[in-house]
Amino acid sequence: MSAGTLDTTLDEARIGVITFPGTLDDRDAARAVRLAGGEPVSLFHADGDLQGVDAVVLPGGFSYGDYLRAGAISRFAPAMDALVDAAKGGMPVLGICNGFQILTEAHLLPGSMIKNEHLHFVCREQVLAVENADTAWTHRYEAGQHITIPLKNQDGQFVADERTLDELEGEGRVAFRYVGWNPNGSRRDIAGITNAAGNVVGLMPHPEHAVEAGFGPDGPDGPRSGTDGLGFFTSVLASLVHA
C-alpha cells in the first residue's frame, strides 16, 4: 500500500503536538500532520486540557535539557497526566526520540533509553524494518518493509531486561528494527516498540523529517526525495477515519 497522502478529506481529524521546554521538533511534527491531510493542534505541557484532539504526537528535542534522565521531568507535566489517561483509553499516541523517552518514563511503554554505546551523538539517514504493520501509526506500511528516515540522538540505546525483551518479541510489539547498522547499541536492534493495543508507539528515529520531497533523506527519486515517514501520519489519520 502507498504511504502517500490520503484521498479522503480529513478536516475533522485533529492531531495534538505537545511542546515541552526544550522541545525542538514540534513544528516539524505539526507540518507532517498537515502534509498527511490532518489538522495539527499545538498543545502546551503545562496545560492539562488536550482540547479534544483525536491523537497526540510527543515530538523530539531535549526537554528540560535531558536533566536527571531524558524525558524524566516532562513525564510529570499536567499535559502528560491527561495523555496517560487518554492513551489507556485507546487514543493513538506517537513518541518520537525524546517523545519516546517520555513515554517510557511515563510507563506507557516498557524499557528505557540510555546513552549511546559509543558515547557519540549520531545523526544519519537510517534504514529501518517495519516489524509490526498493524499499529495505529504503521498500518499503511507492509510488514517487513524497509524505510529510510533520519536518526539523531545521544541517549538512544534501548534497554530492557531479557524477560521484557522476550515478551516484546513474543507479542509482536517490536515495531521497528535497525537494518544494516545498529547505531546506538540498542538491545536486539530495536528502534521502536508498541503497546499491546497498538495505539501507543515510540521510536528513536524521526519520521516527521521525511515527509516532503526536497526536504527529506535521499530516496530512489534522487537526493532529498525520501518521504518514507509520511506513512506514520497517514496511518493514524486512516485509523481515526475508520474508528
Binding site: 540510555i114 546513552k115 549511546n116 554505546e117 559509543h118 558515547l119 540505546q157 534497554v159 531486561d161 547499541g185
Partner: peptide, 14 residues
Amino acid sequence: MPKPEILDPQGKAV
C-alpha cells in the same frame, strides 16, 4: 546507580 546488568557507557569511558 545503574543496575549491575545494564551496561554503563559513561563508566566505560571513565
